[in-house]
């Protein structure tokens, strides 16, 4: 019975998806893909695919690290703006405004070229244990992307913290919970559930910001495609493949987040 029902369900879904005009469109798309596969040059792929995989891995790694660190920074930023005293909320607001008001590319270059040109002037920095890291590009990329994510997500968290109903916090206080416990058990979880739908969008935006790190000589997948373009004098093939890779990663991210969202209790507030 249930097998029959799922079969009928699947048939119904397929008939919604496969209307006649859709079949034509899909065939046209397939023809385009086949044209691209046969008439464009892909003979460079075997030589570069290992480097490409490394690039994808590096982009994903930067994405994961900066999202995690950025979110950890966004929580205090949002909390300070939502309920903090003015000497906490004002700096947090200034930080968010500066990050959201200037291009990420400029922030990245400010850190890499600006600070990067200041640091070597001080001998005590050059002699410290940090110097081997400060000479490389990736710490600047991670810091810039982390700040960017924190700035945008801090604004979201401000709204989420402010959106938790007062009654919840008052009830928690009436139970005699300490301030830290209220924050950990009541305020943060409910704010997090509220912020989760926007977190998907922010993460996708962050993924789309990662290719900028290639401009400060971090070898991510975008830098690999630039190298292929320089080596082979091909314009479109590496870029089209790159677009396809980013679209696939975006699709996977959206799918994973929708699964996480489905597990969270829907009724809030």
């Amino acid at each position: 019975m249930s097998a029959e029902a799922t079969a009928i369900d699947m048939a119904a879904r397929a008939s919604i998806w496969l209307k006649p005009h859709r079949i034509v469109l899909i065939l046209v798309a397939l023809a385009l893909v086949l044209c691209a596969a046969f008439f464009m040059r892909w003979d460079w792929l075997p030589q570069y695919w290992e480097m490409g995989l490394m690039g994808i891995w590096r982009a994903l790694w930067i994405l994961a690290v900066t999202c995690a660190l950025g979110f950890a920074l966004a929580v205090p930023l949002g909390l300070a703006q939502a309920g903090g005293p003015i000497w906490f909320s004002a700096p947090a607001k200034v930080f968010c405004t500066i990050i959201r008001g200037t291009p990420l590319l400029l922030q990245l270059w400010l850190l890499y070229y600006g600070l990067g040109s200041i640091f070597p002037q001080y001998p005590w920095i050059r002699e410290s244990w940090l110097w081997p890291y400060l000479r490389q590009a990736w710490p600047y990329a991670v810091v810039a992307l982390t700040f960017s994510f924190a700035g945008y997500e801090g604004e979201v968290m401000r709204g989420a913290f402010a959106g938790v109903p007062r009654g919840q916090l008052e009830a928690a206080r009436a139970f005699g919970m300490s301030r830290w416990k209220i924050f950990r058990r009541i305020w943060l979880p409910q704010a997090f559930y509220r912020a989760l739908p926007t977190l998907t969008g922010e993460t996708v935006l962050q993924l789309k910001s990662t290719p900028l790190v290639a401009t400060i000589s971090v070898i991510d997948i975008f830098a690999v495609s630039s190298k292929v373009r320089q080596d082979t004098y091909l314009t479109y093939e590496p870029l089209l493949l790159l677009a396809l890779i980013y679209m696939t990663i975006t699709g996977i991210l959206v799918f994973v987040f929708s699964r996480i969202e489905a597990r969270i209790p829907v009724k809030i507030g």
Partner: peptide
Amino acid sequence: PVTRDLLAVYTTVVRAVPELVLILL
């Protein structure tokens, strides 16, 4: 229906690919 599907492809693809890649392409 065809216009709608083509527009859906346009908005989805443009919003899923980094601006930098689109600008180069």
